[in-house]
Design a protein around this nucleic acid. Sequence first.
DNA 1: ATTGTTTATCGCAAATATACGATAAGTTTT
DNA 2: AAAACTTATCGTATATTTGCGATAAACAAT
Lengths: 111, 111
Amino acid sequence: MAYTSTDYKEDEIQMARFAKALSHPARIAIVKLLASMDTCFCGEIVEELPIAQATVSQHLKELKDSGLIQGCIEPPKIRYCIEPENWKKAQKLFSDFWQQSYLSHPQNQTV
Amino acid sequence: MAYTSTDYKEDEIQMARFAKALSHPARIAIVKLLASMDTCFCGEIVEELPIAQATVSQHLKELKDSGLIQGCIEPPKIRYCIEPENWKKAQKLFSDFWQQSYLSHPQNQTV
DNA sequence: ATTGTTTATCGCAAATATACGATAAGTTTT
DNA sequence: AAAACTTATCGTATATTTGCGATAAACAAT
């Protein structure tokens, strides 16, 4: 690490943050579960994944810190779901990113 | 660490691999440069980034290992560019991923 | 052959990430 | 108030990542 906020563009830093949040299969799996709306409580996620509760909780924290998900308290549980604003922000960042390649330009299509 | 290939779905593992490759601002910046086709040699990338040559080379190696970029030898230099097949594969994985959310369903649009 | 150019690799230090058991904290139920 | 339930946090071990200087490796130019 040890890169400062001035070294890179803000968009690059933000996108790297989102990418980092998704850089582990467990977190991809968790977000997919949340996106499906079927599974929203920590306990349900623990049942789906091959890792311990403490580890799931840690992954949830990282996803929360990235802004991609949020949790609201529904005693005695906590319901997790996608954070709409950041989800859209990330969606756009990545969409633009993949698009930007010259591969996306018509004249470079390998038909 | 220490997750085996059977613990998670192959798509999730593959997507996490791509995400990990993009989980650092320097690597985002490098790929953006390559995507623009303006800058393709290691030396040129070093000039653009606030990190040492050895570090850039290391980031390039990680990007190569992820499959997102490739390098072809043009003595005495090495020209880096995007690897089209994996680029498209990643583009689709991420596109589907962001799309999958219930947020993308019409009835959930906050107009 | 020697020198210069370009990039990769080695070796190391410091920082982060991953995983889990144990335990705390908060809430509900009894 | 006590017991049960759900999730977060602590402490710790191990692995990985990041960064850089030094150096090697591969090739071109002289």
